[in-house]
């Protein structure tokens, strides 16, 4: 199992440009205790970032196929699996393609219009137990899951911008999430 992250995370998430964000993450053993520990870190980071609805391990400098989402309470949410952590997730079905504007704590200050499936079926495994899961999601949760799986494939939402006029600044300044306390070893 390769831990490809080169960054020591103090707080917050890694921001682009950083190679860990453009490199495909590797599959891991969901029952490995290190993976379980990373899952806990990922959840803690998501809970600690105001407005954050999902994170993927590469955003913490960890090149593993591990992600979490929680869209509870978001106004665009329809399906809601609550706090969901998945190891080695894969999209097995996708339908109802829709365009919506996305942002990401790893790309502070920018948003983009991105076309994604409005309904997906995702397979993955729970950390700790290794229990297989099949999740059927739609609307905002489906979009959030696809965004995180893109991170695991080394893709940012910018790579899916639907056109030159589809990338937008957020008030022209650095967002609160920029300049996270990240140091490199």
């Amino acid at each position: 199992m390769e831990r490809t992250g080169v960054a020591r995370l103090v707080e917050g998430v890694i921001t682009a440009p950083h190679p860990v964000l453009t490199r495909p993450a590797v599959r891991v053993d969901p029952e490995d205790t290190e993976v379980a520990a990373a899952a806990s870190r990922l959840l803690a980071a998501m809970r600690g970032l105001p407005g954050c609805r999902g994170l993927a391990a590469p955003q913490l400098g960890i090149g593993w196929r591990l992600m979490c989402v929680d869209v509870s309470g978001h106004p665009l949410t329809r399906s809601c699996a609550g706090e969901l952590v998945l190891v080695n997730p894969e999209i097995v079905e996708a339908a109802r393609w829709e365009v919506a504007r996305e942002g990401c704590p790893s790309v502070p200050g920018l948003t983009a219009d991105v076309r994604r499936a409005g309904r997906v079926t995702v397979r993955g495994v729970r950390p700790y137990t290794g229990e297989p899961l099949t999740i059927r999601s739609d609307a905002f949760e489906a979009r959030c899951i696809q965004h995180q799986i893109d991170h695991l494939n080394g893709l940012l939402f910018l790579d899916r911008a639907i056109g030159a006029r589809a990338v937008h600044g957020q008030g022209g300044g650095r967002s609160r999430l920029n300049g996270n306390l990240l140091t490199h070893e």
Binding site: T15, P17, V107, P108, A112, G163, A164, V167, G169
Partner: peptide
């Protein structure tokens, strides 16, 4: 190139072109 947008927040450069 029929349309081009570049954004440079912080150390990141993004260019999207039609």
């Amino acid at each position: 190139i029929t349309s081009l947008t570049t954004r440079a927040p912080g150390e990141l450069l993004v260019a999207v072109a039609d």
